[in-house]
């Protein structure tokens, strides 16, 4: 049976993070999931507008959510930033009438947060099941010591994101186990890499990045995975490049034997 979900790739996955997208689609297909890209999506804006009077910056997310509501009601995201923004805007539409009313009036729609926003990882865990993934792995990544880099945006604020335990998350470690590799737990996996200042304040970004990478290395990680193009860029650009950082979907595709497809 094929499961079909609406899919929101986001701007970066169409350009600099093509691999994140490509391997996600290939893996989904191998797992019997059809990801139906929303027909006319726009960039989510990459950062969630925290002030309540910022309405315009929420609208592209609302459009995507509203479109998904009409197409089955589940929207799969992949990029951490997109997931963060869309999940929180969705909550605003459900819980903050002062925002929802304005957005609905402007877009001439009647949307109140009914779409379920599902991150690709959550989809793997809850809709597919890590056991099923394990059984479909043809090329287990035996012996590879992988550290999961969660960053900020998937986890926090946990009351809104509801993704995992914000201080001791486990979903990516479970994922690493499912593809046959060994997860390396390190404490900085949920601390910020400084992505937002990656370009304008390299000194600060470098400090943040080295804290993450040093800790991962000291704990025995030989490579890192992430779901965030900005984290990946920053960890590479402002790190010492000694630690390979890849998108988790690439390893998934590799394990499922669909990487070269």
């Amino acid at each position: 049976m094929v499961m079909t979900f609406s899919y929101y790739p986001g701007c970066t996955l169409k350009t600099k993070a093509k691999e994140l997208d490509k391997y996600a689609r290939a893996s989904a297909e191998a797992l019997g999931i059809e990801l139906k890209e929303l027909e006319a999506w726009q960039c989510c804006g990459a950062c969630y507008p925290q002030s309540k009077d910022e309405i315009a910056t929420r609208l592209s997310s609302v459009r995507a959510l509203n479109d998904a509501a009409r197409e089955g009601g589940v929207l799969v995201t992949l990029c951490s930033a997109c997931h963060h923004v869309i999940t929180r805007v969705n909550r605003d539409m459900a819980l903050k009438p002062e925002i929802a009313d304005k957005a609905n009036r402007y877009l001439e729609i009647d949307y109140h947060g009914t779409t379920e926003v599902l991150h690709y990882l959550t989809m793997l865990r809850d809709r597919v099941g890590f056991d099923v993934i394990k059984s479909k792995v043809v090329n287990p990544l035996k012996g590879r010591k992988i550290g999961a880099y969660y960053g900020c945006m998937l986890l926090r604020p946990s009351k809104e994101m509801g993704f995992d335990d914000p201080e001791n998350p486990t979903i990516m470690e479970d994922f690493i186990r499912a593809i046959g590799a060994t997860p390396v737990v390190y404490q900085m996996r949920n601390e910020c890499c400084g992505g937002y200042v990656a370009m304008k304040d390299k000194a600060q970004a470098k400090k943040n990045v080295s804290r993450v990478l040093d800790n991962a290395k000291n704990c025995g990680a030989e490579e890192l995975i992430t779901a965030c193009p900005l984290c990946l860029y920053n960890l590479n650009e402002n790190g010492d490049k000694a630690m390979p950082v890849t998108y988790f979907t690439e390893l998934l595709a590799e394990a499922l034997g669909v990487k070269e497809a």
Binding site: G10, C11, T12, T15, K16, A17, C43, G45, A46, C47, P49, T57, C79, A81, G195, Y196, A198, M199, K200, P229, L230, L232, Y233, N236, E237
Partner: peptide
């Protein structure tokens, strides 16, 4: 705090869209 004039200088071939978009949004 962030002007489009600064962009060309910051782009190094690997900068993800996300970084630019968020810089414009944030700053």
């Amino acid at each position: 705090y962030f002007s489009p004039d600064e962009v060309p200088e910051l782009i190094d071939g690997t900068v993800p869209q996300q970084a630019l978009v968020s810089a414009f949004r944030k700053y």
